[in-house]
Measured scan of single mutants.
Amino acid sequence: PEEVRRLVEELYRKGVSPEQVKKILKKQGIDEREIEKVLRRIG
């Protein structure tokens, strides 16, 4: 979803590592598979 992409990109631009991005967003209840999809697209 758009909102997940925005959150991931925001953290990524701040220099947060992909592993940390995953941890942070998982705590917020976001599906890990969604996060990984976005990270793959960015990375």
Score class of each variant (00 low, 15 high):
residue 3 E to C: 06
residue 18 P to Q: 08
residue 12 Y to P: 00
residue 37 K to Q: 09
residue 6 R to M: 09
residue 21 V to G: 00
residue 13 R to V: 06
residue 43 G to M: 07
residue 2 E to S: 11
residue 11 L to T: 01
residue 6 R to D: 04
residue 9 E to S: 06
residue 5 R to T: 12
residue 7 L to H: 04
residue 5 R to I: 10
residue 40 R to P: 03
residue 24 I to H: 04
residue 31 D to K: 05
residue 35 I to L: 04
residue 17 S to N: 08
residue 17 S to I: 06
residue 35 I to H: 00
residue 3 E to A: 11
residue 33 R to I: 09
residue 18 P to G: 08
residue 27 K to D: 11
residue 20 Q to Y: 07
residue 29 G to H: 04
residue 37 K to N: 11
residue 38 V to S: 05
residue 11 L to I: 02
residue 6 R to C: 04
residue 16 V to Q: 08
residue 12 Y to Q: 05
residue 34 E to F: 05
residue 39 L to H: 01
residue 25 L to S: 00
residue 23 K to F: 09
residue 11 L to G: 00
residue 31 D to Q: 05
residue 10 E to M: 14
residue 26 K to V: 14
residue 9 E to G: 05
residue 40 R to K: 12
residue 3 E to M: 11
residue 9 E to C: 15
residue 3 E to T: 11
residue 2 E to K: 09
residue 42 I to W: 07
residue 8 V to S: 01
residue 1 P to C: 05
residue 5 R to G: 07
residue 35 I to E: 00
residue 31 D to M: 05
residue 28 Q to A: 10
residue 2 E to G: 09
residue 27 K to N: 10
residue 35 I to R: 00
residue 22 K to E: 04
residue 8 V to D: 00
residue 22 K to I: 15
residue 30 I to D: 00
residue 42 I to Q: 04
residue 34 E to K: 04
residue 10 E to A: 15
residue 5 R to W: 15
residue 19 E to I: 10
residue 8 V to M: 03
residue 16 V to N: 09
residue 8 V to T: 02
residue 37 K to M: 10
residue 28 Q to Y: 12
residue 20 Q to S: 10
residue 15 G to V: 01
residue 9 E to V: 14
residue 26 K to P: 01
residue 36 E to N: 06
residue 23 K to Y: 13
residue 14 K to S: 10
residue 22 K to A: 08
residue 7 L to Y: 05
residue 23 K to N: 12
residue 26 K to D: 03
residue 12 Y to G: 02
residue 10 E to V: 09
residue 1 P to S: 14
residue 28 Q to T: 08
residue 6 R to P: 02
residue 21 V to Q: 01
residue 7 L to W: 07
residue 31 D to R: 04
residue 41 R to V: 15
residue 15 G to M: 04
residue 20 Q to H: 09
residue 23 K to C: 15
residue 24 I to W: 07
residue 14 K to T: 08
residue 14 K to D: 05
residue 39 L to M: 08
